[in-house]
Simulated assay, not measured.
Amino acid sequence: MTTKNKIASIALTPTATDKHFTRVITAIIISVFAIYLTIGMTLGVLPGFVKSDLKSGNLVVGLVIGLQSLATLLTRAYAGKITDTIGARTSTHRGISMVMLCGLLYITAAGWGGNPSLALGLLLLSRIVHGISESMAVTGTLTWGIGLLGAQKSGKVMTWNGIAMYAGIAIGAPLAIWMKNTIGITYVFAAILLLSAISWLATIRLPDLPVDAAHIRTPFYKVVGLIAGQGLGLAFSSIGFACISSFISLLFAARSWGDPSMAFITFGACYVLTRIFCSSFPDKYGGYKVALVSLTVQVAGQLLIAFSSSRIMAILGCSLTGIGFSLIFPALGVLVVKKVAPQMRGTALGAYAAFFDLSLGLAGPIAGIIAGRFNYEAVYLFGAISCLLAISVLFIYKNK
């Protein structure tokens, strides 16, 4: 056995030490956090840049922002294939390299602000590349972390990975706005290059995972069918989160409840704290049980918002939704990891995450139609019903 394979074998043993776990998870967290800081930073400054500097309308703003998510969704299968056939390290580092390319494209677009058509074209290209990079990097880091620490710690890996993702977006947006107002938007885009380098360096010393080139790959559509129960559960459960992110501000305005910032803050705080203090629950108690409890809490949160008679009730509903939504991805993800061979783990995780992407893409427009036809309270009834559908899906697919 070669030295490289010995290292991989040691890393893959289920009795990985706490020191080894800390080293691996810290590297993964730093890498993912840096990548999602770049995503959060662009979300913070691009709408204003497109609307004010490039003199474009709201439709173009929506196109520029949404194009990244669309690119991420459409390349989940490709990212999974690269991760499984070439390696998690390769997938991760290709994704990071593409983020570096994004930084250069953003900087060039800012420099051509006097030519709106050219600048907009460069932005659209950069958003596509950014979306592909997100798909590659996240699929790679998830598979890499689970492979190094063992499937029995997959829940913890997904939990901490999610904390890094949401923290990066939450911090990135206000940080970028401050940088833009202080030193200019070009420096915001230049910071993407620095963050890419940090992300690369964070994982450079992690051992690679062995790739079984002789393994006969299962077609992507069959993998989707295999994890459809968990994917649909994730999709339905994500709608409550989409309803809060899209319409809680409008609900507060319609009820004259003032600044909705506390609703977002409590949702985010409860989400992160639940992940921090309950990160071991999916591995310890099983993904199925944790998902059912989480969905029940989320239903309560959505109903509390829907029937809220005061600002405090709505904020409490957001808090419960944050608690309930927090462990859904790792809980159902644990079940996904158990259903596939290690050689197909990247493809399965890519397919699983695609359900989340698709849900967020569809939930906003559907909720908007409901709000227009009825009222903002009805949006959260929609969120509660969606969580109940997720519970039904879990019961249906329990033994499948």
Rank of each mutant, 00 (worst) to 15 (best):
Val129Asp: 08
Leu251Ile: 09
Arg275Gly: 15
Tyr36Cys: 03
Ala254Met: 01
Ala242Cys: 10
Gln68His: 11
Gly322Thr: 09
Pro210Asp: 10
Ser135Ile: 06
Ala173His: 07
Ala254Gly: 07
Asp18Val: 06
Tyr271Asp: 10
Ile385Pro: 01
Trp257Lys: 05
Leu123Val: 04
Ser135Glu: 05
Ser308Cys: 13
Met262Leu: 15
Ile169Arg: 09
Met158Lys: 04
Leu194Glu: 00
Val50Lys: 00
Val211Gly: 02
Ser294Ile: 11
Leu105Gln: 04
Asp84Ala: 01
Phe264Ser: 04
Phe49Ser: 01
Thr141Cys: 10
Ser56Ile: 01
Ile65Leu: 14
Ala202Trp: 05
Gln343Tyr: 12
Asp212Thr: 07
Gln68Met: 14
Ala314Trp: 09
Ile171His: 04
Met41Gly: 07
Gly361Thr: 03
Leu124Gln: 02
Leu43Ser: 10
Asn181Ile: 00
Gly121His: 09
Trp144Ser: 01
Ala242Gln: 07
Ser392Glu: 00
Met165Glu: 11
Ala71Ile: 00
Ile276Glu: 08
Gly103Ala: 14
Lys284Ser: 10
Ser319Ile: 09
Met158Cys: 05
Leu118Pro: 02
Ala291His: 07
Gln152Ile: 09
Phe21Met: 11
Ala27Glu: 01
Ile396Arg: 11
Gly57Asp: 15
Ala197His: 01
Gly333Phe: 11
Val340Arg: 07
Thr38Met: 05
Ile198Pro: 04
Ile198Gln: 02
Gly324Ser: 04
Phe264His: 11
Val337Thr: 14
His20Trp: 14
Met100Ala: 14
Leu74Val: 14
Ile183Tyr: 12
Lys398Trp: 11
Glu377Pro: 03
Leu303Arg: 10
Gly286Tyr: 12
Leu250Pro: 02
Asp357Leu: 03
Ala254Phe: 06
Asp53Gly: 00
Thr266Trp: 12
Gly162Asp: 01
Thr143His: 07
Leu273Lys: 01
Cys243Arg: 00
Thr2Leu: 06
Gln302His: 09
Ile25Ala: 00
Ala167Leu: 15
Ile169Leu: 15
Ala77Trp: 03
Ala8Tyr: 07
Ile146Gly: 08
Phe355Lys: 02
Ser31Glu: 10
Ser319Glu: 06
Met313Asn: 12
Val223Ile: 15
Thr218Phe: 05
Leu37Val: 06
Ile244Thr: 03
Ala151Ser: 15
Ser91Phe: 11
Leu389Ile: 15
Leu54Tyr: 00
Cys278Lys: 01
Ala34Gln: 01
Ile323Asp: 00
Val211Ser: 04
Phe356Thr: 04
Gly80Trp: 01
Ala235Leu: 15
Gly111Pro: 06
Ile192Val: 15
Ile86Asn: 07
Leu73Tyr: 12
Ile96Phe: 05
Ile396Gln: 03
Leu316Thr: 13
Phe325Thr: 03
Leu360Trp: 08
Glu134Asn: 13
Ser246Glu: 05
Ser294Gly: 12
Arg275Phe: 06
Ile35Leu: 14
Pro330His: 08
Lys55Cys: 04
Gly258Trp: 12
Ser69Phe: 12
Leu389Ala: 14
Ala291Ile: 07
Thr347Asn: 03
Leu360Glu: 05
Gly372Ser: 07
Val61Tyr: 06
Ala213His: 15
Ile107Phe: 12
Ile10Val: 09
Phe220Gly: 01
Gly40Thr: 11
